[in-house]
Amino acid sequence: MLTRIDHIGIACFDLDATVEFYRATYGFEVFHSEVNEEQGVREAMLRINGTDDGGASYLQLIEPIREDSPVAKWMAKNGEGVHHIAFGTADVDGDSEAIRDKGVRVLYEKPRRGSMDSRITFLHPKDCHGVLTELVTAATPEPSGDPEAH
């Protein structure tokens, strides 16, 4: 069962400048950052709030690090902006199978590693009214305390 909006992915040309915009404009701070070689992106997760299921909601800012990455290809057509929406689930495997059984194309045969060691898969945007949709199972319950420790 999908439990929350996990994050909204925003593609950007300059991660540092985009992070600074969200910090200066809205007061959002970086909770976690990493380079995901498999996805070909450098990213920053800005934590917005906690949720009833123990997770959180984030803005995920993503900058492509290779021209052949899916995000770079998407940006070549669309420029900067909202790239995808991600829903949190306790069981990405079960939920993606249930959604596949309803006729929606699931882009990965098996979930892959995502941000903060989560497990992820994507649903085809043509089957989701034009929205690239991600399903996310967090690696562990959200840590508390100093965000710089993550």
Score class of each variant (00 low, 15 high):
29 E>V: 06
25 T>E: 07
130 G>E: 11
122 F>L: 14
21 F>G: 02
35 V>L: 03
24 A>D: 14
111 P>V: 09
103 G>L: 09
35 V>R: 11
70 P>Y: 03
102 K>Y: 06
144 S>E: 10
99 I>W: 01
55 G>F: 00
58 Y>S: 04
67 E>M: 08
116 M>D: 08
126 K>P: 00
35 V>S: 10
76 A>Y: 07
21 F>P: 00
133 T>M: 12
83 H>C: 00
106 V>S: 09
106 V>F: 10
95 D>S: 05
89 T>V: 07
63 E>R: 02
20 E>H: 12
102 K>A: 15
130 G>D: 09
140 T>S: 14
48 I>A: 00
150 H>W: 11
18 T>M: 14
130 G>I: 03
130 G>Y: 10
78 N>T: 06
141 P>E: 08
115 S>A: 15
27 G>F: 05
32 H>Y: 15
27 G>L: 06
94 G>M: 14
4 R>C: 00
42 R>D: 09
107 L>A: 04
77 K>H: 10
24 A>S: 13
41 V>G: 05
126 K>V: 08
24 A>M: 08
121 T>L: 07
145 G>I: 11
19 V>M: 03
149 A>M: 08
95 D>W: 11
54 G>K: 00
65 I>S: 08
101 D>P: 00
121 T>P: 01
54 G>L: 06
143 P>S: 13
103 G>Y: 08
86 A>Q: 05
93 D>E: 11
125 P>A: 12
69 S>T: 03
33 S>C: 09
119 R>I: 03
72 A>R: 04
43 E>S: 12
3 T>L: 12
41 V>T: 15
140 T>A: 14
35 V>I: 15
110 K>I: 09
10 I>S: 01
96 S>G: 09
33 S>V: 00
48 I>S: 02
50 G>A: 15
38 E>R: 14
25 T>K: 10
87 F>C: 04
107 L>F: 06
81 G>S: 05
96 S>P: 10
69 S>E: 07
71 V>R: 02
50 G>H: 11
89 T>Y: 03
88 G>V: 09
92 V>M: 08
129 H>P: 00
46 L>R: 08
40 G>F: 06
54 G>P: 07
37 E>K: 12
84 H>F: 11
130 G>K: 12
59 L>Q: 01
88 G>A: 14
101 D>C: 01
87 F>H: 13
3 T>P: 01
34 E>R: 10
16 D>R: 04
77 K>N: 14
106 V>T: 04
53 D>E: 12
116 M>I: 13
93 D>I: 14
118 S>A: 15
117 D>C: 03
45 M>P: 04
22 Y>V: 02
130 G>W: 09
65 I>P: 04
48 I>Q: 02
114 G>T: 02
16 D>N: 12
141 P>N: 08
74 W>P: 03
67 E>T: 12
19 V>H: 01
43 E>L: 15
54 G>I: 01
11 A>P: 01
90 A>I: 00
2 L>K: 03
16 D>V: 00
36 N>D: 15
61 L>M: 11
36 N>V: 09
40 G>E: 06
134 E>P: 03
8 I>T: 14
126 K>D: 12
148 E>M: 09
19 V>F: 04
134 E>D: 06
43 E>R: 11
54 G>M: 07
68 D>R: 07
138 A>Q: 09
138 A>P: 02
17 A>L: 12
95 D>H: 04
43 E>H: 11
7 H>P: 07
